[in-house]
């Protein structure tokens, strides 16, 4: 009998509650839901501080994934949906977030979220998401100064890494670490298309390349690719990476080498930036409404 197929690309879903916050004492509770192409994050913030989050796969149904993630974030907190006074939706599925009062683009939300997660010194943010890649320059308040988004092809995105994880049958959590285990850095594979890169990688495997060497070649291609995008907006210190790929040491360290700059260490899960930004905008919008 055929063995059950393992899903190597499947990353772990997670949820978290801040034990130091009692939400019942908070004045303003807002929510942010980031429905991305691959993952959905729901964040609850109390007085502008992170209280709870849930991070799960989007699936094929945007409104439901927003609902599921939001409910999961509320789970066990004793909070009801009506306690969250204002929710903002963002990401690809932002128009399909049922509990959101307003939708804001992910560029603005990521900028604001990165400013919260990494502090006011961040000037350059690279978001490597599921199916696109954004390079954003921001000021000390998290306002966008310049941005560039590449969503035409999957090169330099999490989806590309999932394809490689599946091809090489290595868990997505280990690909970064494994790609570092090479003596000599190999030449990068094609950096302009995931499909071509996969074809190249298959060829390399047939030539007898070890899996980690192939991974190293792909991580390097990805780092080179996003470096070119970053150069277009210009890189200014401090530099931070958000999104799922920020957890991939293989890409991050190679990119750091190319830039000659260290990325800041995140305080929270890097995938949360968009949702945190949305919740912060929700706070701003709610305060504006209350003043009226």
């Amino acid at each position: 009998m055929a063995e059950e197929k393992k899903e190597y690309w499947r990353w772990l879903e997670s949820r978290w509650t801040n034990p130091n916050i009692n939400w019942r004492q908070a004045k303003i509770i807002t929510g942010g839901v980031d429905v991305g192409s691959v993952s959905t994050q729901a964040v609850i913030m109390a007085d502008g501080d992170l209280y709870a989050f849930a991070n799960m796969r989007t699936g094929s149904d945007s409104p439901n994934s927003a609902r599921n993630a939001f409910n999961w974030a509320l789970e066990g907190t004793g909070m009801a949906e009506t306690d969250v006074k204002y929710t903002v939706g963002t990401g690809y599925g932002r128009v399909n977030v049922p509990m959101a009062k307003k939708a804001i683009t992910e560029i603005a939300c990521h900028a604001r979220g990165a400013n919260f997660m990494y502090g006011p010194t961040v000037r350059t943010v690279l978001d490597m998401g599921g199916q696109d890649c954004k390079a954003i320059r921001i000021d000390d308040k998290g306002k966008v100064e310049s941005f560039l988004m590449n969503d035409k092809c999957a090169a330099g995105t999490g989806r590309g890494m999932e394809v490689f994880s599946d091809l090489l049958t290595i868990s997505i959590n280990d690909v970064g670490k494994m790609s570092m285990e090479v003596d000599v850095e190999p030449e990068p594979v094609s950096s302009t298309c995931v499909i071509f890169a996969k074809t190249e990688a298959t060829g390399l495997l047939r030539q007898g390349w070890a899996k980690n060497k192939v991974l190293a070649a792909y991580c390097r291609a990805m780092a080179g690719r996003v470096n070119e995008l970053l150069q277009r907006v210009g890189v200014v210190k401090d530099f931070a990476i958000t999104g799922g790929i920020a957890k991939n040491i293989g890409v991050v360290s190679r990119l750091e080498n190319l830039l000659g700059l260290k990325a800041l260490t995140p305080r929270h899960d890097t995938q949360l930036a968009g949702a945190i930004g949305a919740a912060l905008f929700a706070k701003g919008l709610l305060e504006k409404d209350l003043k009226k």
């Binding site: 310049s146 941005f147 560039l148 302009t192 298309c193 070119e228």
Partner: peptide, 16 residues
């Protein structure tokens, strides 16, 4: 704010 619209593909950079 400088908004760069466009993309990069195998043949070059196309941004406005």
């Amino acid at each position: 704010m400088l908004a760069n619209y466009g993309y990069k593909d195998g043949s070059g950079d196309y941004f406005i």
